[in-house]
């Protein structure tokens, strides 16, 4: 039982880190911390993808005319994750711009305080 989990340690790490990111999303009252939680959540999925691409004893995906499968990690998940990292940064910057905007309009970043301020408006 324990050996099964040790042999899949990256999968266990992926689930634990995903849970921590989810916890931050649910629990944090501060909007900036929520965005940090979203990023932790997202990067745990990247860990899952790169683990799937890894093959024991294989090198990086640097190929030549004689390359055979099994000696290199799978380049496709790496490509998807490169795209996902860049898209993630774009979306984070948009989320943070919205956070700055919310602060300018309401003067707070705390979720509970924000609800009070919004309810107090006519």
């Amino acid at each position: 039982m324990i050996e099964e989990f040790i042999a899949r340690h990256y999968h266990v790490a992926f689930i634990v880190v995903l849970a921590i990111g989810l916890y931050m999303l649910i629990e944090s009252g501060n909007l900036v911390k929520k965005v940090i939680g979203l990023n932790i959540f997202q990067m745990s999925v990247f860990l899952f993808f790169t683990t799937a691409a890894y093959v024991e004893g294989g090198g990086p995906a640097l190929v030549g005319p004689e390359s055979v499968p099994g000696e290199h990690s799978n380049p496709l998940p790496h490509v998807l994750i490169l795209t996902a990292i860049v898209v993630g940064v774009s979306l984070t910057s948009l989320a943070l711009a919205l956070v700055v905007r919310v602060y300018r309009e309401y003067g707070t970043l705390d979720e509970d305080r924000l609800e009070e301020v919004m309810a107090g408006e006519p």
């Binding site: 683990t51 890894y54 990086p60 290199h72």
Partner: peptide, 8 residues
Amino acid sequence: VLLQAPDV
């Protein structure tokens, strides 16, 4: 780096 994904 350990998972042989240097680009990532």
